[in-house]
Design a binder for these strands. Structure first.
Lengths: 261, 261
DNA sequence: CTCAATTTGTTCGTATGTATG
DNA sequence: ACATACATACGAACAAATTGA
């Protein structure tokens, strides 16, 4: 008897914890739950064609009322991700449109090759801008930069929005190229081979209002913010780019050769 | 006249658009607005110590009711980001607490140095596991792996939970070391220098329930999923690790030397 | 064919939170 | 501070479709 009571108490505690985790996101419970279910389905927890647990079971599993589970499931049904059949159950749709992801490689050659040929859309240009403050170890600023805000698309889907600063001394060497093509490959091909290295750092953020708008995402969706600094041999900053990438469309790759000891 | 009408119409359209964006986020309006204000403050739109626009002005600016603005501002006040003084105004707090982040470098040396000395907590061990399926180009599987699930902490805060598979042929060479220390540095120091390269790919996801619990995050919070494959010279997979990192605590760094043409 | 069990669909009533004027 | 409207979430009861005994 006691053990059964303890078991029940434990279960309730667990249920309560799950509930709390879902709650803390400030989203309505049914939205939070539908997001969770969506990503679990996309991760393959319930494969295409298979039956989901019943509303009662899900209600139990996540510690929310059946009606609320139903509401969450309804969101996914509206999206066509699942199908509900009265008297039978809820099923994962057969054809999940496979996501076409963009692979960002971080060896210089593959990175540049990947970028090359893409045509960004320029949202705004500032001809004579100052570089935002950067830490000393990243390099030192040239007198004047060309500041552009651009959007990169894969087909019609935007996957990156980027604020970039290009040393005007570089820009004047090939203005038409810089205006239309991706900046980094052009910079790499610039005569004189001034480019020495590119430092890159990535933070993971939730999309704010501006970014959500430009990447066509809900506010709060996970995005990767990449900061790239390209310097010349003398430490002058030729390029600074701060880009926000849609988390659901981009994969970042690195390969490290391990030095023999 | 016409231009003034057009200007007004434009303004209203902009207001309407902001409003719509705030709305569509599925967050309660006041939460969405507080997020927006928070990021604008952090971006420096209103510097520390300065006065925010009045509730009326903000109400106008964002197209929401004064009471709703007040509610949004209340969230930030609770967070200590701003201070409200009756009859005077609302002010940005002087000291914004900086976040302590973990830098994950991806040159082999710095990466290993960063890991070294950290003591992970092991959640579970499976002595004789099979490697999960991997694409051919990543390498080929050894007959048997040691599978561990571990949590990494910075102080008491968990920042990474990782599922790792270690070739048992490697494990038996230094079982005590592999049991307690970080696997990758130990693997790198293993006599024979079998390790040749490490491939790493990073996806950006929303935390699912399991990860949310283990990293003490709300469900849906942005996390980075890092997949690391370490192979020997002959292509055998010595190590596979799939780690989930808290987005708010981790920065991923890379430096690329640009080959001279 | 019928019946019972299962599972989703629907509707009420109630309580609370959100947003406006 | 108040009145109003609407969304969210819960529990409960009942309806309708499906399945298999």
């Amino acid at each position: 008897m006691e053990s059964s009571v303890a078991g029940r108490g434990e279960l309730d505690a667990k249920r309560e914890e799950i509930r709390r985790r879902l709650r803390t996101s400030a989203l309505p419970l049914y939205v939070a739950l539908s997001n969770l279910l969506r990503s679990e389905i996309q991760e393959g927890r319930w494969p295409p064609g298979s039956q989901l647990p019943t509303l009662e079971q899900l209600s139990d599993l996540y510690g929310v009322a059946r009606v609320t589970v139903r509401q969450a499931v309804g969101v996914l049904a509206d999206d066509g991700l699942i199908e509900r059949v009265q008297g039978k159950g809820t099923f994962v749709a057969d054809a999940l449109a496979p996501r076409k992801v963009i692979r960002l490689d971080s060896s210089w050659h593959t990175f540049v090759r990947m970028l090359d040929g893409n045509l960004p859309e320029t949202l705004s240009v500032e001809q004579d801008a100052r570089l935002p403050p950067i830490p000393d170890e990243e390099g030192w600023a040239a007198p004047s930069y060309r500041h552009m805000r651009r959007v990169h698309r894969s087909g019609s889907e935007p996957y990156c929005v980027i604020d970039l600063y290009l040393d005007n001394a570089c820009y004047t060497l090939a203005p038409e190229a810089f205006d239309t093509a991706m900046v980094i490959p052009v910079l790499g091909r610039l005569p004189g081979a001034k480019v020495q290295k590119m430092a890159q750092s990535l933070r993971i953020l939730a999309a704010d209002l501006t970014v959500a708008r430009q990447l066509d995402l809900p506010v709060g969706a996970p995005v990767g913010e990449v900061r790239r600094v390209i310097t010349a041999k003398d430490g002058r900053v030729l390029y600074l780019g701060i880009g926000q990438y849609r988390g659901d469309l981009v994969v970042f790759n690195t390969t490290l050769e391990v030095p023999a000891e």
